[in-house]
Simulated scan of single mutants.
Amino acid sequence: MLSEKSTATVRATLPAVGAAVGDIAELFYQKLFAAHPALLRDLFNRGNQSSGLQKQALAGSIAAFATHLVQHPDTRPDVMLNRIAHKHASLGVTREQYPVVHQHLFEAIAEVLGDAVTPEVAQAWDEVYWLMANALIAIEERLHAEQRVLAGEVWREWTVAARTEETADCATFHLTPADGRRAPGFKPGQYVSVQVELPDGARQIRQYSLSTSPGSPVRAITVKRVHGPAAGGPDGEVSHHLHTRVHPGDTLRVSAPYGDLTLKDSTAPVLLASAGIGCTPMLSMLEHLADTAHTAPVTVLHADRTPADHPLRSDHRALTHKLPAATARFWYEESAEPGDAAGRMDLTDVPVAPGTRAYLCGPLPFMRSVREQLLGKGVAAADIHYEVFGPDMWLASA
């Protein structure tokens, strides 16, 4: 809880800080990477830095956290904190890095806002920072304890046992622990971080959802190669590396599993909606539902550019057919086949059972559209859960 004095100061200065928070975030990263270049090389996603997404997410999360403290002083924005903490845990972030961030962030605040940063203002925003940082540290340490790992020691070597080409741009890597020890358990919907050494020596990290169920003897990740301006460049460098350089027999450095979008064990109806490579956590959930003989209605929805671009399409259908009360509907912008729908996902004619729990994964505009349609069909907002690949711009702007 923010102190009464600091609450008044933060409330008074929030408009000015909020208006400048983008500039503050940009200067912060400049200062951080100038002092600690290894963080950009080996921890932060260079693609998200280049595109500005990480700066936007940081700025949005700080503003959202401070706003919540002022407007709801007796609660914390736990959804946002949990999502950030899972990302940090999977990257191996440690408590020792928070004072480093604090130093450069507050240097940036002082430089951008100038004389407006009085000692009283600095103290109030310092309190905001450490409330957020200490909350994240506590959550991250709990997550590490659940995985029985130490902070910063989340990595293990895994062997690529097999590789399957799913589409022209998607490949599944089937993984087994290189040390022969038992694979860590995970919840359907969670992801792992994968760290690869690139030609320039950087050890870049990306998160990939586990696309098989916890009951599967082999872990699998399905990776889509990023195309467009980023192909072979910062945005697509890890996916490009995995597609062109990693084959059966090779090893990968993989984190323990994390992620807050997880299938809740219950007898409630389930709806799984995805687009593009967003089907991967949905496939893990779907396989788990089939493994546990889920009897309530399951609605499987997917949207893609064409059937040929739909990763794991045959698995999507086969797993749906294993469930006694499951239906699947696919939408394709081009080349829709008989039985499939043309265009973007439209839930007008999709029946949604009362009490449905919905899980979404895909591009942010897709999830916004599906969420609005589900709310219109009476699904409770608390029962609609989602996963974002990369910085969570939805939470940061919420």
Rank of each mutant, 00 (worst) to 15 (best):
I137S: 06
A151C: 12
E372D: 15
G249P: 02
A171N: 06
M367I: 07
R163S: 12
L319D: 00
K322Q: 15
L32R: 05
V149Y: 02
V100T: 15
T262C: 14
R344V: 10
G228A: 09
I139G: 02
A116F: 06
V192T: 08
T306N: 05
G249T: 07
A382R: 13
T222S: 14
V79C: 05
L58Y: 00
A133L: 09
S51P: 01
P307M: 05
D265C: 04
F28D: 00
H72K: 11
I84M: 10
V352C: 08
V149T: 13
T7I: 03
L323C: 03
G343C: 08
H174R: 07
S284E: 05
A35Q: 13
R313F: 07
P188S: 06
Q56N: 07
A183V: 09
P119F: 10
D169P: 01
S6W: 04
I109S: 00
R313E: 08
L105P: 02
F65Y: 15
P217W: 11
N134K: 14
R148S: 15
T348N: 12
G215L: 03
H241M: 10
L58D: 00
D265P: 05
K322E: 08
T320P: 04
L252W: 07
L272W: 05
S6K: 03
D78G: 07
L198E: 02
F65S: 02
P391N: 11
H302Q: 13
V21E: 01
D315A: 15
P354A: 09
L105A: 06
R181K: 13
A122F: 08
G228H: 07
P324M: 09
H310C: 11
H302S: 12
A256S: 12
M80Q: 15
R41Q: 14
M285Q: 13
T7C: 10
W158N: 01
R76D: 04
V70N: 05
E157M: 12
C279Y: 03
P281V: 06
Y208I: 10
G362C: 07
E165N: 11
N45M: 06
I84N: 01
I384Q: 03
D383A: 14
V100P: 02
G339F: 06
R368K: 13
M367N: 01
K224V: 09
S369D: 14
D304C: 13
L131D: 04
I62C: 02
I384G: 04
T244K: 11
T306H: 07
Y359L: 11
P99H: 10
P338T: 02
E334I: 05
H174W: 14
A151S: 15
I62G: 00
L272G: 06
E372N: 12
K224I: 07
D392F: 04
K264E: 14
R142D: 15
H72M: 07
A66M: 09
Q204M: 13
T280S: 09
E127T: 10
P311R: 11
H316P: 00
